[in-house]
């Protein structure tokens, strides 16, 4: 090998081993990157003149602040815990309606062809359309209060749950159905002992997605017309350029969504432990 080739090979080898060394400790890299980003954020926040990006420390202060104070200037809105409760109530009401009814309709649609024919078109239409577009109609029909928010949340999450449920039931392994038939299962037994247990993974996925959509729904509703709760805080602090508090609220919303989704995910994993 000539010197040029040897150098080239050496470069490739050392470059490759660098990459390999990094890959061996993915956790470390993650932490490093996160740390680096936090540092950047802090630096940019403190030094730059853009008010848009406050330093992380400022945001933490803002977060502490809204935990207790009620904003007075530009409009009152409660403390963070109060608004968390407000949003949470709507979320629970809307989700509590949407999840069971979504599963119910999904099950009916999978079981009875007539039901499927009746609803299929509308469900698909609602799934594909931008749900936000329907919010003005909801306002016209239900006003600006709690009911309207619940309806919005329902609309956001119902369809995803329904579709996942019906797909899950319909896509159960056919050979299991055949096997149960050969052992003399009745239609009812087939449904309850094969279809439903087999559909649990997808139903749980639907619930997880539904909750994610519900959170989007409640924030959308609050930001777009109700101006209460967490979404309302976003609007208020945004309009008054109170960046630190705004970011603090956004972080809280993200944390809320994260906690909810993770919990459902954990339940999901527990229920589907039998999967490979």
């Amino acid at each position: 090998m000539g010197t040029a080739q040897r150098d080239a090979t050496a470069k490739i080898v050392s470059g490759a081993s660098w990459g390999q060394a990094l890959s061996r400790h993915p956790g470390a890299v993650q932490i490093l990157v996160a740390f680096f980003l936090i540092l950047c954020w802090e630096a940019v926040g403190r030094t730059s003149r853009f008010a848009i990006l406050p330093p992380l420390s400022g945001i933490m202060q803002g977060w502490w602040n809204i935990l207790f104070t009620r904003r007075a200037a530009g409009g009152t809105i409660g403390t963070l815990p109060e608004n968390l409760l407000l949003s949470g109530q709507a979320l629970v009401a809307g989700g509590g309606l949407a999840l069971p009814s979504g599963i119910l309709l999904g099950t009916l649609m999978a079981r009875y062809r007539k039901v499927e024919y009746l609803f299929d078109f509308y469900i698909n239409a609602f799934m594909s359309a931008p749900t936000a577009a329907f919010i003005p109609i909801i306002v016209v029909l239900f006003g600006l209060g709690f009911t309207a928010r619940v309806v919005v949340i329902f609309l956001y999450s119902f369809f995803v749950v329904c579709v996942n449920t019906s797909t899950g039931i319909r896509h159960v392994d056919r050979s299991l159905v055949e096997m149960a038939r050969s052992f003399g299962a009745t239609e009812r037994q087939l449904f309850w002992k094969i279809m439903i247990p087999g559909a649990v993974p997808l139903i749980m996925a639907g619930i997880r997605l539904g909750i994610g959509r519900a959170v989007k729904g409640v924030i959308n509703a609050e930001a777009l017309f109700a101006i209460v709760g967490l979404g309302g805080m976003v609007m208020l602090y945004g309009n008054s350029f109170d960046m630190e508090k705004l970011y603090a609220v956004i972080f809280t919303i993200v944390a809320l969504a994260y906690v909810l989704m993770k919990s459902v995910h954990l339940i999901e994993k527990r229920l589907t432990r039998w999967q490979e």
Binding site: D173, E178, M179, S182, P197, W274
Partner: peptide
Amino acid sequence: RGMVFQNFALLPWV
């Protein structure tokens, strides 16, 4: 009659 299946057809969740 009782049948044994080629791809086992066991219920994975029990």
